[in-house]
Amino acid sequence: MEGRRVRSFSEYDPAVTAVYFAAVMGLAMFSNSPAITLLSLCGALLYFFSLNGTSGGRFHLFAFLLFIILAAVNPLVSHNGTTVLLVVNDRPITLEALIYGLCSSVLITGTLYWLRCFTQIMTTDKLLRVTGFLSPKLSLVLSMAVRFVPLFGRQWQKINNAQRAMGLYREDNAIDGARGSLRVFSVLVTWALENGITTADSMEARGCGVSRRTSFHKFRLRHGDYILLAAELILFAGAASAAAAGAFDFSCYPSVTMAERDWRTYTGAAAYGLLVLLPVIIDMEARIRWSLLKPTGLALSIPERKNMP
């Protein structure tokens, strides 16, 4: 362990992170087995908590409401299935539809939590690194877009203020407000076109388009990145091959049927379970190693403080 850098999951190379999220979410979405989706939801929740602690209450509330609504809507609109639980308005509510609704709720909320974690740790820098792998041009366009959208917003505010203080708005009412906003928008478009010409000049002066672009990034693939990537791929392969062999086959209609459980089911589920836990395990390890490192760090910093004038 000596010499290996202590880092949390979010500090690994963005490509490794992106592969991870694609593997976890992809598998959950393509195998509709409740075992896999449930594992995915649990892993996502754990990682979300490990990133945010107890904050993020609003998001939990939103996810919970979504879960309830999705689970409730399916049995109300879908009347397939053989086990009738009760009849409402001459329409049967079936157990199978209820289970199907629950399964898709678990899948969707799980994916939602994963996506939330993804946007939290994938900053624009990291997204650019990943798109740079695919195409340097795409990466540039994205970077320009990321810059332009807030720029547009700020300029809107500026123009609106300027026009207000010059008496563009005559009255405090909605119609006048809309009329004014429309004119502000037209100035904004003119400004954007004008702005675009300068930006284009600046790009041309720096040789945009003279040859094949390379894509610069601040990341460097290290030993640990390869190890993590390999672990991700092995676990993914284990779970995916089990799913492909039909070990997780599951269908609700006309009645709930599940594939026979054999060794493939167990190893596949174990592989996927380990896969969804990877970020939490890595973060936990980093946290423990940091807390072990701390005393030395403190001891070093104290004499330095004393020397300060």
Binding site: T124, D125, V146, R147, S202, F216
Partner: peptide
């Protein structure tokens, strides 16, 4: 208006 990308490092590399 001369700045093309959103991050300083990317602008320097452009």
């Amino acid at each position: 208006q001369q700045i093309v990308t959103d991050k300083v490092w990317h602008e320097l590399a452009f």
